[in-house]
């Protein structure tokens, strides 16, 4: 039987659930959204006056605290997940 001695106390790094919603900026035409709106009407679903398609990116992230998690996700959203020339993004973050 062996005994292990932990030299450092176990650190528990919190895990966060994040969702980034990426949307085309209002000024940018969304032809796929328009085509889908047309199909909605052909399905018989009336009254949809606006339909815009975006992306939802769901992530789990380990970070020391919420501020740091937010900082990393904001960087990611700005630099990779969205192209600020044509897209806006918003971040939802919660402890898991």
């Amino acid at each position: 039987m062996s005994v292990r001695i932990h030299k450092a106390p176990l650190e528990i790094v919190p895990r966060y659930q994040a969702r980034v919603l990426v949307r085309l900026r209002p000024s940018v035409l969304d032809p796929a959204g328009e085509a889908t709106r047309g199909a909605a009407s052909r399905l018989g679903v009336e009254g949809i006056s606006k339909l815009r398609i975006g992306k939802a990116v769901e992530m789990e992230l380990d970070a020391p605290d919420e501020a740091e998690a937010r900082r990393r996700l904001e960087l990611l959203s700005d630099r990779l997940l969205a192209n600020p020339v044509i897209e806006d993004w918003s971040l939802e973050l919660q402890d898991s």
Binding site: V28, L29, P31, A32, N83, V85
Partner: peptide, 11 residues
């Protein structure tokens, strides 16, 4: 280069 390329207007 500035700007971006997006989906063709007629898809």
């Amino acid at each position: 280069l500035p700007g971006a390329l997006t989906r063709n207007s007629e898809l």
